[in-house]
Design a protein around this nucleic acid. Structure first.
Lengths: 222, 222
DNA sequence: GGGCGCGTAGTACCGCGGTACTACGCGCCC
DNA sequence: GGGCGCGTAGTACCGCGGTACTACGCGCCC
């Protein structure tokens, strides 16, 4: 039996969730809360297995409430429900320690499966949000154990390529680099292309970021 | 109708998937492959909507096959199936560009829902794997911190424009910013254009440099 | 009530950026 | 002497980025 606390500022929405959860035997709604502060208080008091948390609420919102609930150290897990798939919310909620994110328009079975998974200690994310999460994950999370022999790229650059990267880091266009280095633009493109491939950058913008992150470019006084 | 290519080295396993997918009207199995190389070839030939990809196979494994399929630029999406929830596989598969990961012991409805989501362009992850993914994500992905008060040029930006500049500083394309901020690409272009004009940048590359020089962007661990 | 700033959104257009090739001279070294 | 890394250069092609507009709803304030 999974105990659930429903948190939403709209009574009708709470009622709907309540009805749904009452319709199956494995969940038991132990309480409701209309805003963040009440959610934090009732979680401490009722110790539900799962807190079904709306994000947008007057006063303390769902993210801050999640943060406090997780920080309090209880074993209640939080399943966040968002109407909009605004990333700021998702990021903030992940950081706050939520166990899942589903969109409010999820089908009933999805919601129930989500609650089941969260109660079990797993986590769930709505498919529509997962796509972007994976993209971002792939970009930021270092690929330990797989590749990266300590210096992904930089060491494999030739002297010329490093010069080119520095020039790119200054914000110069291919044409400007060609003029300053006395090369054809084709040659510059060839070099830039190789640099991008070696450092794993999608375009010169990410190369600029790479240059800054690796100390190849340094802030000017503007 | 979603067309599916089944990739698994075990004939019995393929047979099981085939039966399952044939049992519902919305999926159509257009082929099978017994190893990675065959999967790559048949994907190019049959152009299925979804490739159901086993990880562990003799010869070219599912990860490498996924990498090649995604790199080839077709519109086939890959749903990876793992028997074990080994992290190395998950990481590698995310980096390879897979649209989803499910455990082989998933319930039939989960698998079908997964295929549906992936075909639709979304992504899915088995709840048991999501937990760890979120933890790692929260550890590595930097939070959107908007700091740094008054600054020449910077002060004339509206809040929205400053948000856009920060996003540009992360190396995001206009399309990515539009998706993450839930805006049209036109709107993003309008914002970016105004930002460039206000800070006196020629293009977004100089805007990235500006962001770094003014502390709006900060190096990540990479 | 009208003006204004802001955020949103669209159309049209063009050029730079990036990819995918091929090519070749030069110097080095097995 | 042939292979190889490197720097140079070209062609072809396409898409994203950026510009130049217009437009409109909303909230604020004179």
């Amino acid at each position: 039996m999974t105990t659930v606390l429903i948190v939403d500022d709209q009574p009708l929405q709470r009622y709907g969730f309540h009805l749904l959860l009452d319709s199956v035997p494995e969940t038991d709604v132990v309480g409701e809360a209309a805003h963040g502060a009440e959610a934090v208080r009732k979680t401490a008091e009722l110790r539900p297995d799962v807190v079904l948390m709306d994000v947008r609420m007057p006063g303390m919102d769902g993210i801050e409430a999640t943060r406090r609930i997780i920080a309090s150290g209880g074993r209640s897990r939080v399943l966040v429900l968002t109407t909009f798939d605004l990333d700021e919310y998702v990021h903030a909620a992940i950081r706050a320690g939520a166990s899942g994110f589903l969109l409010k328009d999820a089908r009933p079975e999805e919601l129930l499966a989500g609650i089941r998974a969260v109660a079990y200690g797993d986590a769930v994310i709505a498919p529509a949000l997962t796509r972007r999460l994976l993209d971002e994950y792939a970009r930021y999370v270092p690929s330990h154990r797989v590749d990266s022999p300590e210096d992904p790229g930089l060491g494999s650059l030739t002297d010329r390529e490093r010069e080119i990267l520095v020039a790119v880091g200054k914000g110069w266009t291919n044409g400007e680099i060609a003029t300053r280095f006395v090369l054809s633009e084709s040659t510059v493109k060839t070099h830039v292309g190789r640099v991008l491939a070696k450092i794993g950058a999608r375009d010169r913008i990410q190369a600029v970021i790479f240059a800054y992150d690796h100390g190849l470019a340094r802030p000017n006084a503007d």
